[in-house]
């Protein structure tokens, strides 16, 4: 037989099957009567696979090895997608934090004297604080632009690994780490600027 039917896969036993009503024009000759040549071919294929296995052309466990390799890649892709999703979330979080405003500067204290003092200092240094905020805002906008261009680059670098663009994975890793290093440097500069602005406002 050419066709190895597996009715048992459907979970049905032949006796329990409900009747199937077939339209008149079809399945009048469901199985071929002239497939002997294919039977012979199948037999030859079986034999040749065995021969190659015996001759060592197909080493033992080759198919399993290839399958494991594929699933290893598949798992790697999942991790990659997760990393990119985490990056997107981090960028969204960073953007949410970049709304700079005087109203966000905390001047409250439990001590009424300190509270009054903080308000007075705040009023006296409002020009300086606004100046710092403007600079930080400019820096933040520039940083946002850099990140906006880096994120698709990171995504496409990860993607080009999956698309088989010809680059080696190690090369992609290096580029990704370079991009992340740059983001880290920019974040450090932003932190330093914010600290400086805090010092000045106090």
């Amino acid at each position: 037989m050419v066709h190895l039917r597996r009715r048992e896969e459907s979970g049905l036993t032949p006796g329990k099957n409900p009747p199937l009503r077939c339209a008149s024009h079809q399945y009048t000759h469901p199985m071929p009567a002239n497939a002997d040549d294919l039977d012979d071919v199948l037999e030859r294929i079986h034999d040749r696979v065995e021969e190659r296995r015996e001759a060592g052309d197909y080493p033992p466990g080759l198919e399993q090895q290839l399958d494991r390799h594929y699933h290893h890649i598949l798992k790697g892709f999942d991790a990659e997608v997760e990393a990119i999703t985490a990056l997107r979330l981090a960028v969204a979080n960073l953007r949410a934090q970049s709304e700079f405003d005087l109203a966000r500067v905390d001047t409250w204290s439990g001590n009424p004297v300190k509270r009054l003092l903080l308000r007075i200092v705040g009023k006296l240094t409002v020009r300086q604080t606004r100046g710092v905020l403007t600079q930080v805002k400019l820096f933040s906008d520039a940083l946002d632009e850099v990140i906006a261009s880096l994120v698709p680059m990171v995504e496409s670098l990860a993607g080009s690994g999956t698309e088989g663009g010809g680059r080696e994975r190690s090369d992609l890793d290096k580029r990704l780490h370079t991009a992340l290093d740059r983001i880290g440097l920019l974040e450090e500069r932003l932190d330093r600027s914010l600290e400086a602005s805090d010092d000045r406002s106090v």
Partner: peptide, 14 residues
Amino acid sequence: ECLAAVGYEDITVI
């Protein structure tokens, strides 16, 4: 056959 496995009866094959 798959449809029969979820309880359908008198299925017409077209």
